[in-house]
Each structure stands twice: as structure tokens, then as C-alpha cells.
């Protein structure tokens, strides 16, 4: 459900021939557990005695990015939905200069601010069903968006030099369409940083699908544990 909440619209529709990148991220068997709460209650949390607890849903915090040599001339518009008590996708990637619109689909007004640059988002609350737009200016930067009234509400925007971005589903599948033929590098972002693995070369053909199944090692999530 979350995947559909994030939409990236490719504005460069004038490409004559383009391919599609399809893949599945092979996750390690030992996925990290959910981190301990930053603000615990009176009692330390404990696991239920019936069945093992679920591991951290790592794919929800992943972004697959395919970067080529050319920078996007017209970065596509990005919609980022705020659903209930959290962002539809905790982490998004956006091309430098792209228009990012936050849409509040919850029942509560939110006042969002970027920790790294308080001026990035215009001040003032976002009422239910209301939007708020901002433009991340420079590639390579990461912006953490929070609400002071809801400290648990945290979203991150990764600014990249490409418009070819995908968000894997729970099983790790992803798909990027309309990629011009050529040679690209595939990178995977997890929560707070790039996953520690060599960039994978991807050759996109003029037509058809290109399959790629990036494999993550057991140490892929080391040092990039999710932070609330």
C-alpha cells in the first residue's frame, strides 16, 4: 500500500526508445530486528510468547536508484503522502531541483520542518488533505523532515542526480520504466545511508526489460540501522 503512495512522474516523455529495469533485492536471512524504542515506557518492551517477532521491514526504508552520466534536464515532480501517523514511505529520493509535494492524508494538521535546513519547507501547518511543496536544491544531500508535535514522525529525502528511482515492495521487487538505453550504476539506499556494497553496472537496452537481482550481504545493514 505504501508503494502506491509515492509517485514519481517522468516528465521526459519524449524518449523515442526506452527500456525497463526489473529486479528483486535478495535480502539476507538475518534481517535486523526492530530497534529499541527511543522513548521507552515504564516497562521494557518484550516479545510475545506465541510466535517470533517480525524483523524490521527493511524494504520499506529502501530506495533503488539508477544513475547515468546525464543529469535530468527537467526533474520530475514527486508526491510524498503523509498517511496517518507516518509518511507513506519513510524514505524517498528526488532529483536535485525536483518539485516535492507533501500531501497530508491524515486527520491531523502537521507542521513539518527539515532539520538540516529549516527554510527548505515553507513554515506553517499542513492541514488535512492539504499540500506543501519544496525543492531540494543540491544532489548528495539528505533532508530529515519532522514534526515537533509528533517526534516519531520522521521522513527522509535523498537528493540524487537521476530521475530513475524505485521503491521495492515487501519482498524486494522493484521496477523502473522508461530508462533510456545506456550504461548506468545501481545503488540502494537504506534508511540513513547507502548500503555498503559496490555500485552495480546496469546496461539498459532500447526495448524490453532488463533483469537485475542485487544481493545484499549479511553486513549490508550494519551501520545503517534505522533511526526514528
Amino acid at each position: 500500500m505504501r508503494d502506491v503512495l509515492v509517485a514519481a512522474t517522468v516528465m521526459a516523455s519524449g524518449v523515442a526508445s526506452a527500456g525497463t529495469l526489473v529486479g528483486k533485492i535478495e535480502l539476507p536471512s538475518n534481517l535486523p530486528a526492530r530497534p529499541k524504542p527511543v522513548e521507552p515506557g515504564f516497562v521494557e518492551r518484550y516479545e510475545n510468547p506465541v510466535t517470533p517477532v517480525r524483523p524490521l521491514a527493511v524494504t520499506q526504508r529502501m530506495v533503488v536508484v539508477v544513475e547515468g552520466d546525464e543529469k535530468p534536464a527537467a526533474p520530475p515532480r514527486v508526491q510524498w503522502n503523509l498517511v496517518g501517523e507516518s509518511f507513506g514511505h519513510p524514505v524517498i529520493a528526488a532529483a536535485a531541483g525536483a518539485e516535492v509535494t507533501i500531501v497530508n492524508q491524515s486527520k491531523t494538521a502537521r507542521t513539518l520542518v527539515a532539520k538540516e535546513d529549516p527554510k527548505l519547507i515553507d513554515p506553517g501547518p499542513i492541514n488535512p488533505s492539504g499540500p506543501k511543496t519544496f525543492h531540494p536544491p543540491e544532489a548528495g544531500k539528505v533532508y530529515t523532515i519532522t514534526d515537533k508535535d509528533a517526534p516519531y514522525l520522521v521522513g527522509r529525502v535523498v537528493v540524487v542526480n537521476t530521475q530513475y528511482i524505485a521503491y521495492p515492495d515487501e519482498s524486494g521487487h522493484f521496477e523502473i520504466e522508461n530508462i533510456p538505453p545506456g550504461s548506468y550504476k545501481l545503488k540502494i539506499w537504506f534508511d540513513t545511508g547507502w548500503i555498503n556494497r559496490p555500485d552495480e553496472d546496469v546496461n539498459i537496452s532500447a526495448k524490453g526489460k532488463t533483469d537485475i537481482n542485487p544481493k545484499l550481504g549479511a553486513d549490508a545493514f550494519a551501520g545503517s540501522a534505522p533511526k526514528k
Partner: peptide, 9 residues
């Protein structure tokens, strides 16, 4: 939802 029991305020 992940299977933990805990409290909060």
C-alpha cells in the same frame, strides 16, 4: 504489530 508488548505515554 511486530509482536512486541510494551507501554507508552
Amino acid at each position: 504489530l511486530a509482536g512486541y508488548l510494551r507501554d507508552d505515554l
